[in-house]
Nucleic acid binder design. Structure first.
Lengths: 252, 252
DNA sequence: GTCTATAATATGATAGAC
DNA sequence: GTCTATCATATTATAGAC
């Protein structure tokens, strides 16, 4: 694993007994359009390449999201994608590159829903919608959610830069929106960061801890009844809170 | 890895090219009190053994919680525990056993705080206290939280049984308490399962996604000010909700 | 109990024919 | 582009001396 010792290191505990640490070979770039040929043929070929890459990436996501980078072998990904190992290594120079590609595809999906927040919206509606959309993702792309979680747990060695930049900026912008809502009295006085964390946590939980959810409730988000139940409850908890309110019977 | 093919299998994608699948050797049991000796000497020895096991387990938790089972080598654990690899393998028959031991220690810690809930408590205080206690754990034992999360993501292959039994029973008992609170009008009408999920998710988030939290806020729970901020905000969100209430300015 | 080999093997990656 | 060897190595686990 410590083949490329210097660059963006993957999640692995620092080896104690390092032998020699080879001088980091430079890998070839991805197969790109070779040069001139009939335009139609080129585009057809490019599409085929992209398709195959995509098949591999999907297979990789499924395995990485369950077993992590080290728990998954190239062989397994290849088998799942129905290509040979060497063929896979033709499309992705090495395992780590494959992993990073999977992650990179993820981040975009990940940041998307948050972009929706804008000051002129009704915050209750905006937040309610956001919860639903994130739960849809937890239902339809639990593997994406899990891989993201896995990467976070490991300290996000391959996303750290993006985290520090893209994510942070987006969160800052949306925090400003939330602050505005609070200032306008449309939202209870709550710290935007912690509110965003609560939104992320409560919704992703159904994907990342899906096994636990199923062990306890016996159901999954694929069950439409349970899905709506989850949406409704998360929305109620985050928006109204669990305390009894004035309009219901009040204890103490 | 597919050495013991049958039993409680660890989180690894099913290998495609299985060679022979050996007939699962029976491993020796742990070193236990050999027999008769001076009682004092025996107890001293036993303590030493337990101490060493404990040191190894702690080192293992630290690494497993970051890099997972497959991302951690026995060598690394041994180095961190400051014992030789062979010596480690004297105390734990194999890597998997070590991993399971670490997990087993965890579950107890994990279930503890929830036991606190009882019907005669004021729910707001009970839930508020629970949030604080879980955040203390997220602060003081983030590695425990992360490993638990890792295991869940992977489908909890080694905890599945316990999940189905212990955890489920405990949650059922506490759900009954919550239902009682709701029936008494002390709590808003909320499904106990989803409330418990929300409590877990919002509090563990600060440990499991600690890197993200730090990337965004620049702070960690080790900062006392941030810790109190987190406690306060999570309590407010879960108990009162984010919506503006009657007593504050009401938008629309 | 602890150590030094060393066996056994899984897996990442490359070379080179076609 | 795809395949069949094949190499190289990291790592688990055991054997056996002390």
């Amino acid at each position: 694993m410590p083949k490329t010792a210097a660059a963006g290191k993957p999640a692995r505990a620092p080896a104690k007994t390092v032998k020699t640490a080879k001088p980091a070979k430079v890998k070839r770039a991805l197969p790109r359009a070779p040069a001139a040929r009939s335009p139609a043929a080129v585009s057809r070929r490019l599409r085929q390449i992209e398709d195959k890459r995509s098949v591999i990436l999907t297979a990789a996501l499924g395995l990485f999201s369950r077993f992590g980078l080290h728990g998954t072998s190239i062989d397994q990904v290849a088998a799942r994608a129905d290509v040979s190992k060497s063929n896979l290594l033709y499309y992705f120079a090495n395992k780590e590159e494959l992993y990073v590609c999977v992650l990179r595809d993820l981040l975009a999906v990940w940041l998307e829903p948050l972009r929706g927040f804008s000051p002129e919206q009704d915050p209750r509606k905006a937040i309610g919608d956001y919860i639903r959309r994130k739960l849809v993702i937890s239902r339809d792309r639990p593997d994406a959610s899990r891989l993201f979680c896995l990467e976070m747990i490991q300290g996000a060695p391959l996303l750290r830069d993006e985290l520090g930049r893209e994510l942070r900026d987006l969160v800052e912008r949306k925090s400003e929106v939330i602050r505005q809502w609070v200032a306008d009295g449309k939202l209870a006085p709550v710290d935007p960061h912690h509110l965003i964390f609560a939104l992320w946590a409560t919704t992703q939980h159904y994907a990342d801890f899906g096994v636990q959810v199923q062990a306890i409730t016996g159901r999954t988000l694929d069950d439409p009844g349970f899905f709506e139940e989850a949406v409704d409850n998360v929305q109620r908890i985050v928006l109204q809170g669990a305390s009894a309110h004035a309009d219901s019977a009040s204890g103490r």
